[in-house]
Design a protein around this nucleic acid. Sequence first.
DNA 1: GGCCACACCGTAAACGTTTACAGTGCGAGG
DNA 2: CCTCGCACTGTAAACGTTTACGGTGTGGCC
Lengths: 339, 339
Amino acid sequence: MADGPTINTIAARAGVSIASVSRVLNGLPTRQETVRKVMAAADELGYVRNAVARSLKSRRTHQVAFAMADVGNPAYLAMLRQIQPVLKAAGYRLVLHSTDAVVADEIDVLHGLGERYVDGLIMVPLRVTESHLEMLAAARAPVVIIGSVPEGTPVDNVRADSRTGVKLAVDHLHSLGRRRIGMINGPLDTVPGAARGAAYREALGDLGLPYDEDLVQIGDFYRAEGGRAVAELLARRPDVDALMCANDLIALGALDVLRAAGRRVPDDVAVAGMDDTDLAAASWPALTSVSLGSAERGKVAAELLLDRLQGGEREPRVVTVPPHLMVRASTVGAEEGGA
Amino acid sequence: MADGPTINTIAARAGVSIASVSRVLNGLPTRQETVRKVMAAADELGYVRNAVARSLKSRRTHQVAFAMADVGNPAYLAMLRQIQPVLKAAGYRLVLHSTDAVVADEIDVLHGLGERYVDGLIMVPLRVTESHLEMLAAARAPVVIIGSVPEGTPVDNVRADSRTGVKLAVDHLHSLGRRRIGMINGPLDTVPGAARGAAYREALGDLGLPYDEDLVQIGDFYRAEGGRAVAELLARRPDVDALMCANDLIALGALDVLRAAGRRVPDDVAVAGMDDTDLAAASWPALTSVSLGSAERGKVAAELLLDRLQGGEREPRVVTVPPHLMVRASTVGAEEGGA
DNA sequence: GGCCACACCGTAAACGTTTACAGTGCGAGG
DNA sequence: CCTCGCACTGTAAACGTTTACGGTGTGGCC
């Protein structure tokens, strides 16, 4: 692992100046003979351009960061899978930040933009605090936020419409004749938790159903915790006939607990999840789930960022990706829901 | 987004030299008064160290790359989830490369090491070609390969023991009384495909069962393709009573097709997968699966790389992570296999 | 009072590029 | 034969740091 060749090494071997070497390597007009000598020297030495020095001079790293709470979460994974190829095609590398849902870590990432190790950032914040907004206003590189950010924040913004999404699912459950529709939500001080909780209440209102606090249980966005929340709700309201779960993991937890409690799904209790992850199709019964277009949002975010990186200044944009409902067996049963 | 402050800006404002600024920022011994002035200036200006310039001088980027075929694959995802926190704790950023199982892309990544944009690389190659070995021998940064690499290749190597893994599963199926154990494999020119195919044959031999080509079907490592392969095998050998699938996705495809064909799992056909991904626990019936310790391998790989980054030269190491069998309903039924 | 040691600081070089600018040599045109 | 323009090339500065080295001022000691 001896020190690799630099343009100096090449210049010496080819008997030309480093400027000429650089010109050849960058395809600038040069005499044929010189091109030949430089190329030969570079080949023999196995030269590779030093990306760091390049970045220092050009002020471009050709790297983009993607920050979210947890790569393990299928919704984020779906975004990542779309972001990656878009960036790659444009010649950008992807730096991954898992913040473990720690707000301080998210702030760190924003602060880190000042270090200029990336040209831009795509972030999915779990909560948007004052600190976030301050850092965003002062950000030293283009940022795209997936999630909602107040009007006037100087960043591109890709939103899901979870309000409509929840409504789609609740309407669906209602149309199946369910009237005691419970909700299992994540923490209310998270962006999705708050939005989905409010949307549930609103959807009930639109249908003329009463909002009953006993039918709502807060847990966390994970399977085991979701299951626990369902168990509590079942104990309190054994007559519940449908469950609107704030994400698929919670819904899987619900299926676990309902099965253990001997309740049939969907006959006794219909279950709907959100995010339409791979798990929804893999579970049994397959899970009816609201797709909030995670993949689509990732793609749009990457494109917005690239546009800004390549195009320069422009007004911040807000794009809202519409939700749609994937109906499967957990609400309509095996025949109609398919395998 | 005006040009941010540099140590020059700070030096000017604090009335000291850039050397002093640098010393203060790096905590080198300095007079209290100077420290105060520099800190004050840095704070007022909102200074953040430029990582690129730093890297150029220090020849350290504090970045590590992780390259695999597809982030969407749960086995790679499991590795990623372990690698990420280990690197983060050590102050390294993670650069993600999805090679889409294209060999040329893998070579590109290895070649890219010469650009020195990362301090090291963890790679999961799908195939190990001559080109791979050449590039590995010439690699300009430490590399850890997850998968098997020939003796003498100058890189750390973390292996799964799929031979023992397949044997665990086949023995399990045999112990349940199954005797016509089919295998659904991925392409034989991939490392896992070849290893798992050979292990299957060997495991049968150990049990005194004949190797029957009709019971083997090659497809690809994905759900739909796996399903198609199972359909073909079923058509040829309707009497098959167990399926050893080369990964969980194939096994899910098998469950789809068996259900559609009206075969009960595990009563008529027992199904075992490999990799023990999240999907295995989510499916119905829950999938018996061989864990090859993906998470563990990721963790070990990250630790080996860090050790080399921090410790310097040493002999290449080979670590083999033992497999274990997760028994679930797809082989033993709901009662014993649990939910 | 002179000298030395020491603590602190500033100057400048270096990391590996890109690029503005100036220099060279050549052929063509007067 | 001189001059000019042109094509090409080389010198050097710059990107923002870190750090070796030498310089300065202070205090202590003889």
